[in-house]
């Protein structure tokens, strides 16, 4: 079985995120890293491989992004992926969620995966929806926010998945091929070994442009996106809260109690 893992490069959490007012796009400059949520997807792939219920032939990391996104792929490979695929093209710049999902799906079709794994959300986008878009294009069943996943060897191979939805925990049986986004509670990602980090750059990496994967240029990028985003404005101003730096805890606690007392909360 072949597992493709979608990974994304995101600005480091420590870096202030901002919108470039001239283009209306997210300013993605500054320190970049592999989206931390995606490390759980790679780990999930590794645990299926090591679990032995099914034979995993290959784990392939796939990303769409600018040239710097290669670093996210190297990190993914150091965490266990066998090789990686990098879709990069100027025509993709400014793609909205639907266009990004379409482009990723076209890229994935070339790999014919049995299972596509992805993270629960990208650290910078806060939309947790790419999985559902990709799945519809690939015509595969799909589930997001999965926190427990057990493989039942087939045929057909199935996944028994658990996740929290609006009314409690749901258990869903999903037949492969499928697209699954995993929550961060699913596992504890391992640390890459020094050897794996050193070797990551030597693993095969396919660099692809939109023509290589049959992506219609008029369905991606800013012009191919169906949403026009703009008119950025500040949210209604909220008076800033009081902040106490805890240096002397007795004093801090005194202040908290006084604050609560003033508001008749004790």
């Amino acid at each position: 079985m072949k597992i493709c893992v979608l990974v994304k490069e995101v600005p480091d959490a420590a870096v202030q995120k901002r919108i470039d007012p001239s283009t209306g796009r997210m300013d993605r400059n500054g320190e970049k890293n592999l989206n931390p949520y995606d490390t759980h997807a790679i780990e999930a792939a590794m645990q299926i491989r090591e679990g032995g219920a099914v034979e995993v032939d290959e784990i392939v990391a796939v990303t769409m992004g600018p040239s710097t996104a290669i670093r996210a792929l190297h990190k993914a490979v150091s965490l266990g992926a066998d090789r990686s695929v990098h879709l990069s093209d100027d025509a993709l710049a400014g793609s909205d969620v639907a266009a990004t999902g379409y482009a990723l799906a076209q890229t994935l079709k070339r790999e014919s995966p049995d299972l596509v794994l992805l993270g629960q959300q990208s650290d910078d986008g806060e939309c947790y929806t790419i999985g559902a878009v990709v799945a519809d294009h690939l015509q595969m069943p799909s589930l997001t926010q999965v926190i427990q996943m057990d493989v039942e060897a087939g045929p057909p191979t199935q996944l028994r998945c658990e996740r929290q939805a609006e009314y409690g925990y749901d258990t869903v049986q999903v037949e492969l091929p499928a697209v699954i986004s995993v929550g961060d509670a699913i596992n504890e990602p391992r640390y890459p070994s020094l050897k794996a980090i050193m070797g990551a750059k030597k693993k095969p990496l396919d660099a692809l442009a939109i023509g290589d994967v049959d992506i219609a240029a008029d369905r991606v990028g800013e012009s191919g996106s169906k949403v026009i985003c703009g008119d950025f404005k500040a949210p209604p101003a909220k008076s800033a809260g009081e902040i106490i730096e805890d240096e002397d805890t007795n004093e801090t606690v005194e202040k908290i109690v006084a604050w609560l007392d003033e508001r008749k909360l004790i």
């Binding site: 639907a98 799906a105 806060e126 929806t129 799945a135 609006e166 369905r219 169906k226 949403v227």
Partner: peptide
Amino acid sequence: LLGFEIGAGLAARLNAGVTME
């Protein structure tokens, strides 16, 4: 949660624009 999944999948199906949150 379901709204997010349905809305996103529907956007793919209908080639529509989608906004969440």
